[in-house]
Design a binder for these strands. Structure first.
Lengths: 323, 323
DNA sequence: CCTGAAATACTCACATCGAGTATAAGGAGG
DNA sequence: CCTCCTTATACTCGATGTGAGTATTTCAGG
């Protein structure tokens, strides 16, 4: 072993940040805090302290202090620690950033003045394909294609084109909703996202940067959370962590559509949910919603004992028959 | 906000640890290092240092220093940081532990004296179901059932029974191979695993503890890695990171079986791999393996451009028809 | 009583997949 | 050269899953 190096242990601060997600049939949202006037918003967060028994306990205490929000399901997402990409300052001590995802049932109106709920697609407009591909995305994709074409060397160009295909589905057919983080990272590399210009001189800021930015790396954490949630609804019944105690089929479908950012086929969604045994009827019906009254449902926790992976597989359109 | 608390920032050290996995048709293995004579083995690891640009770069440099092994695919697994469960010492400063999974193609014979390859089921005998349920598991399951029955209060007993069902499939039908970490954590809580007795006085050590232990929380990290790998082979073609450039269907199948710890139906496995377009023939055949010579295959990287989630769905036995 | 809107129910074709069986192609031993 | 063993490879069958479309019910409001 080489023992010649300095082996200087890093002075590390650890920041715990939470993506607190709620969802309604209209769409998902995230709890944000704004520390000072003009600054971008951020996630509830705070440093790890000595009296935190576990990382999750530390996170919960910071969130309660900043937002008075009680958390239900909590899971760790990822630990970010690039030396150059942490603080806006630049050469500060390394800041590790541990991101968490928390799900809450009701988006209670955030009594703290600093905290507020935001639709999460304000920060990721390109991720919402519920009404087809937003036209604003055309501009974004054009810039991405330019970026790929502008690479030095054929090998690098090819690599970039492949990544555009795998993430945004450019050149291929498939939009894969889980790959939220990969898409955000691509935009960061391509300089299309405001956070990428943080280190650069103020004049170099890009006025056409896409989506509303957040402080430090919080948008990256949010991207991780969205991707994780989109992946996980397929094999675990966690949508129900976001639903009220009783709900209709359509409310459930709209919520899932909001999370996944795509539209689903109504009869098939019903069939899927019913066949999986994910829900049972409460016996009541809604004070209707415009048409025939809908039966109310509740989550059936026994499904966890019966099925190995009870989730909501999102349909993938069948490939057109070859000619 | 309450500002009364001491808000003492924690002094944190960060350890980077790598599960370096290789696999052959005989079974998967992991690269371990042994620091001192009688101590249990551990994973290659070292503290995060100031000159590490990224966490992954730091990990790679430690691994190369300790094992002279070049890493291919690397991914972050999880960050552990329970205050009480880190060092054997007890009240030391908090040690964050960031676990990584790395895949390597050949298990080169570990030229460093301290490093050696270990079959990973030495540490997790209960995870290998390739030849049915090992008989040693009966004992383990008996102890788990006792543990569940010994809980205080009916509610807690019920909770424990449910967990036994969801992890080990006791009382239900399903063994879900991904849930490696959940199973290990359950054994830890039940005190069936040697690491659980670390804090306890030496006399309380359990001679019947299951599986070969590792230093600090390294077996927990290994459990995370196995679980992640088992989950991921289903939707990403990462087995091929472990295969040699050319291989036969059966070699591929045996490797997957080793990772997943289950046996697969041969014709169906062939069909799956072929239909997905995961491989192409090299045109050559093996200097046989006992019977008819087999065609050699190679991974077909184009599949990444074509299929959204090219993996190897492991079959789940069809439920017996109701009588 | 008609209309619109949503809820609910049903159909159909096709792909997938678990399970089993049959045939081909080598080597070893007589 | 024939037999037998072993593995590779090919094919079949039936059940289930699922994408897509259509039909029917049930409410509100005019």
């Amino acid at each position: 072993m080489k023992q010649t190096k300095s082996h200087r242990r890093d002075t590390v601060t650890v920041e715990l940040s939470a993506v607190i997600a709620a969802a309604s049939p209209a769409g998902p949202s995230v709890l944000t805090v704004r520390h000072s006037g003009g600054a971008p918003s951020g996630l509830p967060s705070g440093p790890l302290e000595a009296d935190h028994r576990t990382l999750e306990a530390g996170l919960r205490s910071w969130v309660e202090e900043q937002t008075s929000q009680r958390l239900g399901h909590v899971e760790q997402l990822y630990t970010f620690g690039d030396r150059d990409r942490a603080a806006a300052g630049g050469l500060a001590a390394r800041a590790l950033s541990i991101g968490y995802l928390a799900l809450v049932r009701e988006a209670r109106p955030a009594d703290s003045a600093a905290a507020s709920w935001q639709g999460w697609y304000r920060h990721f407009p390109w991720e919402d394909r519920r009404d087809g591909r937003p036209t604003a995305v055309d501009r974004l994709e054009r810039r991405l294609v330019e970026w790929a074409a502008g690479a030095a060397g054929e090998a690098e160009r090819r690599l970039r084109r492949d990544r555009l295909g795998a993430t945004f589905g450019i050149g291929t057919d498939g939009w894969i909703e889980d790959r939220v983080l990969e898409r955000y990272e691509l935009l960061y590399e391509a300089g299309i996202v405001a956070e990428a210009a943080r280190g650069a001189p103020a004049g170099a800021r890009d006025p056409g940067a896409e989506g509303e930015p957040m402080v430090t790396d919080h948008r990256r954490i949010l991207a991780t959370a969205i991707g994780r949630l989109r992946g996980k609804i397929k094999y675990r019944p966690i949508v129900f962590e976001l639903m009220p105690p009783a709900f209709t089929f359509l409310q459930l479908q709209r919520t899932v559509e909001g999370l996944a950012g795509v539209r689903l086929h109504k009869p098939n969604f019903r069939r899927l949910v019913a066949q999986q045994g994910l829900v049972e009827e409460t016996g009541e019906v809604t004070p209707e919603t415009g048409g025939r009254p809908a039966r109310l449902l509740r989550f059936r926790p026994d499904v966890l004992r019966e099925r190995p992976a009870p989730g909501l597989r999102l349909p993938r359109p069948r490939a057109a028959a070859p000619d």
